[in-house]
């Protein structure tokens, strides 16, 4: 028990200690070598920039987070529904799957200007959500399709033995059985929706979208490197928060039906 809790501590302590060491070393080296602040600001300068600009930056962070969350929720919903359609009809799958792949492999940066034209320049947030959705929905679709198909053949036989209909089989067997697949896809998809929002903001944002990506561009143009780093820190924090939240959800849900809780 001592060993196990020791290892749990290690999982938090080790990266934390590394972070502290890196920050301290970074601070010292920047001062020792007198690195210009526009090239590499010291951690203290970044912290200061974060503090000084916190009202704008936090507002931007909220903007980015909310667009990412909207894209994420739509990606999960769309992925699940399409996966259900795929498992219900091979024809639907045969017809739609290639286009899902095309959408997935086409760089989102390349279609961004097009989407922007379609939704209108004054509708930049909508364009951002659409683009982030395009990036985020594929993992849900492919994993969920896999999960809906990977059902214990014994249980399927059992459902057939009692004359279960397609709806019963979906609701009572396939959906619960695919939950682990969905949850691991959601972890990937949440990260991708954040990436999608940032990339889309770079392309489409140009002044109309006040997200973190725009703050980074803006600060970069003004050579306010500490502010760029401050925005980056917030982006990383959002990504980590999403990942931790979904990992907790995954652990909570799956602990009810697996021994492998740890």
């Amino acid at each position: 028990m001592n060993g196990a809790s020791g290892r749990a501590y290690l999982r938090w302590l080790a990266p934390l200690a590394l972070a502290v060491a890196v920050v301290v070393l970074w601070e010292v080296l920047v001062h020792v070598f007198a690195v210009p602040v526009y090239r590499l600001p010291a951690p203290s300068a970044i912290a200061l920039a974060l503090y000084d600009g916190h009202s704008t930056l936090l507002e931007s962070a909220w903007h980015t987070l909310s667009l990412a969350l909207i894209a994420f929720v739509l990606a999960v919903a769309g992925g699940i529904l399409l996966a259900i359609a795929f498992t219900r009809s091979r024809l639907v799958e045969a017809a739609l799957y290639p286009y899902a792949v095309v959408l997935q492999v086409t760089p989102v940066v390349a279609i961004a200007p097009l989407i922007l034209i379609w939704v209108g320049l004054d509708n930049a947030p909508l364009a951002v959500v659409i683009l982030a959705w395009v990036v985020a929905f594929f993992p849900v679709l492919s994993n969920m399709t896999l999960g809906l198909r990977a059902v214990d053949p014994g249980l399927r036989a059992l459902f057939r033995l009692y004359g279960a209909g397609a709806w019963q089989e979906l609701r009572l067997l396939r959906l619960p059985a695919s939950l682990p697949y969905l949850l691991s896809a959601m972890k990937v998809s949440a990260g991708l929706s954040l990436v999608g929002v940032v990339v889309a903001e770079f392309v489409a944002g140009a002044g109309t979208s006040p997200g973190l990506a725009w703050r980074i561009l803006e600060a970069g143009n003004r050579l306010q490197t500490p502010r760029m780093f401050a925005a980056l820190v917030l982006l990383a924090a959002i990504g980590v928060a999403l990942f931790i939240a979904l990992s907790c959800l995954e652990r909570r849900v799956l602990s009810r039906w697996h021994e492998s809780r740890r």
Partner: peptide
């Protein structure tokens, strides 16, 4: 069946 085939959830 050969396995208990219970729904784990």
């Amino acid at each position: 069946f050969q396995e208990a085939t219970l729904m784990p959830w």
